[in-house]
């Protein structure tokens, strides 16, 4: 039996397996470190908290906040890049990039993040606040 020939073939297989394992490790590392931190849900929650504080006073709905003065009253700057969409159901407030609203029914890590919360106020009213964030880089 040609033992040296067999040894050479085995070492070729050995390097091929080593290369495949190394390629898999490199791929996993690149994917892990290449994925950005996703803080969109935290950002949406912070915005909902700010809106909730803004539209309520003494646990009741505040009068005087409407679609026209919403951003100034609640001190929110949606920027120029259409990364946000905000909707407050009962007050008929809708600001930002309305195209982001359609992503609320879809699921996916790369899609805009949609967060909805219900706010219970005195008087039995339930106010729905929806925020969609597409702040990615």
């Amino acid at each position: 039996m040609n033992r040296r020939g067999t040894d050479k073939i085995i070492s070729v297989y050995w390097f091929a397996i080593l290369f495949i394992v190394a390629a898999a490790v490199v791929y996993m590392v690149v994917v892990f470190y290449g994925t950005p931190y996703d803080v969109r849900e935290a950002e949406a929650s912070a915005m909902i908290n700010q809106i909730a504080d803004c539209i309520t006073k003494d646990n009741k709905l505040r009068t005087g906040v409407n679609n026209d003065n919403f951003l100034e009253e609640c001190h929110i700057n949606l920027g120029k890049e259409n990364k946000y969409y905000v909707e407050v159901g009962d007050l008929e407030i809708a600001k930002g990039n309305m195209n982001l609203n359609e992503f609320c029914d879809k699921k996916g890590n790369k899609l805009p993040k949609c967060v909805e919360r219900k706010l219970y106020v005195l008087g039995g009213e339930i106010v729905e606040i929806k925020v969609v964030v597409n702040n990615v880089k």
Partner: peptide, 22 residues
Amino acid sequence: DNVVTVKLHEKGGYSYSFFNDV
């Protein structure tokens, strides 16, 4: 302009915007 930029070397830098108008 409501954007935070962190830069630790000459050719680097990462920017992220915030919505709170303060």
